[in-house]
């Protein structure tokens, strides 16, 4: 495998049981994600973009296929190399920062505290200067001591990005990060992602908004029915 690619997936598959029916949310997707690029996974609802993102972000275990992250084999159905929960946790800690559609900030914690939360779990020292830097980068200066309830949606999502950045991740996974934002704030968030990718962080985002993806992302991957229909992500 090539070191140029931070994530490599081969024939990645994920089945769900929906009642008695077996649904393939992701059906044999192979992608190679280049480091420092901003990827946008687009497609209609149910196209499998979120599921794929969860698999790539080690939030979920694949049903079949191969997955390597940072050169480490996370999953390989051929050698029965199923990753354990704990292993996924350590992989997540090592490589990823996550941003969610609903922000998921803790309402009782201040902006700064929310951002430093991952450091607590990672058992890393919380460096106030670093937190300040992140706030500055996200245009949240002066908001450090505010509670989430005092922020706008766009600000909350930027705090969530800040939280993802706190552990200096190599990859940021953002599933529908703009789903709850107006177009102006959505653009702001994508601008941040672009900036981050320019700094060498790989950004994987899933979005409905093709326009936004086209305006900011480096590469667009289109999905339909759990398969890649068109895209810039290596093997199609």
């Amino acid at each position: 495998m090539n070191n140029r690619y931070i994530i490599e997936a081969e024939s990645l598959t994920k089945h769900y049981k929906m009642g008695s029916e077996d649904i393939s949310a992701v059906a044999g997707v192979s992608v190679q994600i280049e480091q420092g690029k901003f990827y946008a996974f687009v497609g209609p609802s149910g196209s499998g973009k979120s599921t794929l993102l969860n698999l790539l972000g080690a939030l979920d275990t694949p049903s079949a296929g191969k997955l390597n992250i940072g050169g480490e084999q996370v999953f390989n159905s051929e050698t029965n190399g199923k990753s354990s929960q704990r292993n996924l946790t350590s992989i997540r800690r090592k490589y990823f920062g996550f941003v969610f559609q609903n922000f998921y900030l803790l309402p009782t914690l201040t902006v700064k505290e929310n951002i430093s939360l991952p450091l607590l779990f990672a058992r890393k020292k919380i460096d106030p200067e670093q937190i300040d830097k992140i706030l500055k980068k996200l245009g949240l200066e002066g908001r450090g001591k505010h509670l989430p309830s005092q922020l706008s949606g766009g600000e909350m999502q930027r705090v969530a990005i800040g939280r993802a950045l706190a552990v200096n991740p190599q990859i940021i996974i953002a599933d529908e990060p703009t789903g709850n934002l107006d177009s102006k704030n959505a653009a702001l968030v994508f601008e941040v992602f672009k900036k981050l990718s320019e700094e060498g962080i790989t950004v994987l985002t899933a979005t409905h908004d093709v326009q936004l993806a086209q305006n900011f992302s480096d590469k667009i991957v289109r999905l339909k029915d759990g398969k890649i229909v068109e895209g810039d992500a290596g093997i199609c």
Binding site: L59, Q85, F100, Y104, R163
Partner: peptide, 16 residues
């Protein structure tokens, strides 16, 4: 559950 999920997503282990 969700909050715990988030904790785990942002790096919390089972023990945490």
């Amino acid at each position: 559950r969700r909050e715990i999920g988030i904790f785990k997503a942002i790096g919390a282990g089972n023990f945490d």
